[in-house]
Design a protein around this nucleic acid. Sequence first.
DNA 1: CCGCGGCATGCAAGCGCTTACATGCGGCCA
DNA 2: TGGCCGCATGTAAGCGCTTGCATGCCGCGG
Lengths: 339, 339
Amino acid sequence: MKPLPTLADVACLAQVSTATVSRVLNAPDRVREETRRRVQEAVAQLGYTPNFGARALASNRTRTVGAVIPTMENAIFARGLQALQEELARADVTLLVATSNYDPAREEAQIRTLLGRGVEGLVLIGEEREAHVYDLIRQRGIPAVLVWTWRADCPWPCVGFDNRASARSIAERALALGHRRIAMIAGVTAGNDRARQRVEGVREALEAAGLRLDGDLLVEAEYSLAAGRDAALGLLARRPRPTALVCGNDVLAAGAVAAAREAGLDVPGDVSVSGFDDIDLAKVVYPPIATVHVPHRRMGLSAARLLLALDAGERRPESRRFDTEIVEGGSLGPAPAER
Amino acid sequence: MKPLPTLADVACLAQVSTATVSRVLNAPDRVREETRRRVQEAVAQLGYTPNFGARALASNRTRTVGAVIPTMENAIFARGLQALQEELARADVTLLVATSNYDPAREEAQIRTLLGRGVEGLVLIGEEREAHVYDLIRQRGIPAVLVWTWRADCPWPCVGFDNRASARSIAERALALGHRRIAMIAGVTAGNDRARQRVEGVREALEAAGLRLDGDLLVEAEYSLAAGRDAALGLLARRPRPTALVCGNDVLAAGAVAAAREAGLDVPGDVSVSGFDDIDLAKVVYPPIATVHVPHRRMGLSAARLLLALDAGERRPESRRFDTEIVEGGSLGPAPAER
DNA sequence: CCGCGGCATGCAAGCGCTTACATGCGGCCA
DNA sequence: TGGCCGCATGTAAGCGCTTGCATGCCGCGG
């Protein structure tokens, strides 16, 4: 493995000092036209690429931000991140992505790794994590923004939406359609405040209507079609059978629709189903799933802007709350008449 | 922003030299038990995290590999990468992910960035790229593996499958079911060898049956439900109407199914649809899409293993070809009888 | 004709870490 | 008891880059 060309090699070839080469790269207008051209030629000829580590070490800047998400396999994060990254790239900032697999310890380790790599900003999903993790970030003095979540008095800047309120509103929709036996298939709530808030939202709506979301009608399922299907089969076997399955996300809802079909039930004739997130999947299953539209891309974009602003020194940690809206879909219909 | 603790700070607090601290971190068994404990305490007390750049600079190793994918929004890449990353993490190697948005120039830029960051291995999607990009990589002397593609005499190690053969086989399936007017909705082939190979595979199958996949019956669509739907609507308006729409991926196929429903056509009674990739989506639409199962996760895993092996000095660039298999689905049925 | 200001460039000191080599100590064998 | 070996630790030289300051040059005004 031949050694890579260094600044010194370029300098030597171009007959200038390393300082000049460095300036050509970082502040071209501080170098005389002709010298600059000579250096640029040398760079091209050698195929020189600056060594990132050395540069970071010397300048103490990295133009890099890090994001830790649970998993790339969840489309909502993929979309949001893609937008985030595109926007950061526009400002010539690199995004480092790490995944935690919904494990708080792993998330902390990933945050440490990112900090060690000198990220100048951090994007984290949700608000729930141990205090010392926040201390760590605060101590480093780098900006962090919490996304996919929003709470009025969150001490950190957030870019997200009110999971609880959105969940409440879709549950209210089900109530308005006459449903009374409403069950919920939630995402796994352990270590996942978004999933928990969605449960709380649904519970609030039910309680306001004098109903309860008790243990029997609330199950958690991991993020997969199969898990949604299994959970739904379990719930649909209950007697009396629930007339509506409110799901914590669209994947679970799609699984539930499949389960209903499998159980010989009509959706929404026998049982209604609702989702959350409004991913493509929701529009493709039949009947289309009524869901909550969440502007994932816009949130990613907005998070990027906020981070760049913070990075540029603006000290207004202005959170941004996005509105969600209910997307109608054939899967959610009037409650069947009592028999 | 207070300065981060450095090795020297830790050394000072623990009353040892920086060399010893470094050894505690990198080769703990070369340090006496008691000294080691003292150092570890100091590390914990200061919340010290090694500076990655400095470490890379001094040791000339990064334990980092990079991957450049077109976009995270495509589920197949997300799944594969997730698996890749998990496996690399097991070996304590960090994965850097960059996206090219299907733009060759951007891909090259990303590769350069990754090289500058000192990646010790590279994962690239597909084989098609300019020679000088390969030269660049070769010159750096780092291992690279091409994934999602496979070709017998590819000069680089591949971990993938034969897109062309797989596409041929699903087209043959359609032929076997009696279809003769077969159209294809392909992914965008420009700069995408996988998409192109799938087209070629279908064409081969058709030509072997004495049919042609002419311009009229071949359209390209970008990777989205809407594009698939639009393309399908266009094709279904042709007279005579195609009896089968072979699609370059499942997303397009799902769009096509939706289009058929919209056009009042029965799937597969009036028109059959096939997909490619076997993402979750394919099983959720109704009728379920007949598709080609591609083991994305296993490919990611395998790519990781190959890269680690190469990294460990094994110089057997042994490619790995995965088999695909056709997944039956209600969307692909016998050709309707001629009327 | 001298001096001064401004510009282009060079010099050299680090940035935080790893590591080859030096040092010093204790123990073992002869 | 002396010599030698090996272990634990320290010393210090970089790794490739940025950047404050020094240097030298040119042109202009006094």
